[in-house]
Write a protein that binds this DNA or RNA. Structure first.
Length: 287
DNA sequence: CGATACACCTGTGTGC
DNA sequence: TGCACACAGGTGTATC
């Protein structure tokens, strides 16, 4: 599920069930995901109020009343499901009626308001950690992250600075979270197509004007995707059970063989492999 | 330093 | 139906 728009969609979906609410009990059903869970996880979560839910790059950050922040990453296959339908006449209250726990539900949060929130991750590339809120910025997973693409620090000028003399293909550089934080394979392909840049172009050989265009297209595609509730590949649902629909707006991702959607372009979308990952682009209009 | 390959893991789709 | 294989939204680590 998880590039920036999907993670932001999950964060928003969690808000009604989790923000301002107390975790009655955390059910930890395995030792860890990509890394072992922090020591005493269940005890450190039990009784904590989730004061607010934030997002940094592809991480969801839950600030707890205990002075710690829970850091959550969904990896490739992570998703979150909320159960306990909101009670119609009691805002913020959930029915205590839940479907059975599913395979790969690794951590289940039982909220005091009746909601049940399950972290499901088949491939277990995801992560969950706890860190003192005041030390959050120096957390190893966050410390080296580049600017938020939707924040003020991200611009064509920032790209120009970061890409100077870099010889790697622009595709790989945009996936580097130290340069800009939150893009993944889908939105890099989409942004490069919109900016008419070939994914193999060396980063250091793209002009300033084109980088401005690229920065702008990155922001636009992310904003459009967030507005659509993210992309749902296969039948993955967002936290609130709804399906994001941005996948219908892909111009190139997973569309090899289809005609290029750029107005006036007669090219056909191609798939190549870069760094072991698929890139989709139009050989006619992306230079 | 920068560039690339590989590792981690399960599920799904395809072709035989 | 079974089997082998390619591929999947990420990213830390090892290696040159």
């Amino acid at each position: 599920m998880p590039e920036l728009p999907e993670v932001e969609t999950v964060r928003r979906g969690l808000e009604p069930a989790m923000a301002g609410q107390r975790i009655a009990r955390a059910e930890v059903r395995r030792e860890g995901l990509r890394w072992p869970f922090p020591a005493g996880l269940a005890d450190r979560l039990a009784g904590a109020v989730v004061e607010r839910l934030r997002r940094r790059s592809k991480y969801i950050l839950a600030d707890l009343s205990t002075g710690e922040t829970m850091l959550l990453h969904l990896g490739m296959s992570g998703r979150i499901t909320i159960s306990g339908m909101a009670a119609p006449h009691v805002p913020g209250r959930f029915h205590h009626h839940h479907p059975p726990v599913e395979k790969h539900d690794h951590v289940v949060f039982h909220m005091e308001n009746g909601a049940r929130i399950a972290l499901n991750d088949a491939r277990r590339f995801g992560a969950l950690d706890l860190v003192a809120t005041e030390a959050l910025d120096s957390h190893p997973l966050l410390a080296a992250l580049g600017p938020e693409p939707l924040g003020n620090a991200f611009s064509g000028a920032h790209l120009a600075r970061s890409l100077q003399r870099r010889k790697s293909p622009i595709k790989a550089l945009l996936l580097d979270q130290r340069i800009v934080a939150g893009l993944g394979n889908i939105y890099v392909c989409e942004a490069l197509h919109r900016a008419l840049i070939h994914p193999r172009r060396a980063g250091g050989r793209i002009g300033a004007a084109r980088l401005e265009r690229l920065a702008s297209e990155v922001r636009l595609v992310l904003q459009e995707a967030i507005a659509a509730g993210g992309s749902s590949l296969r039948d993955y649902r967002q936290a609130d059970g709804e399906l994001g629909y941005f996948q219908h707006s892909f111009r190139v991702y997973d569309r090899a063989g289809h005609p290029c959607p750029t107005p006036g372009c007669t090219g056909k979308i191609r798939r190549i492999v870069q760094g072991g990952r698929s890139s989709f682009y139009c050989p006619a209009c992306q230079k």
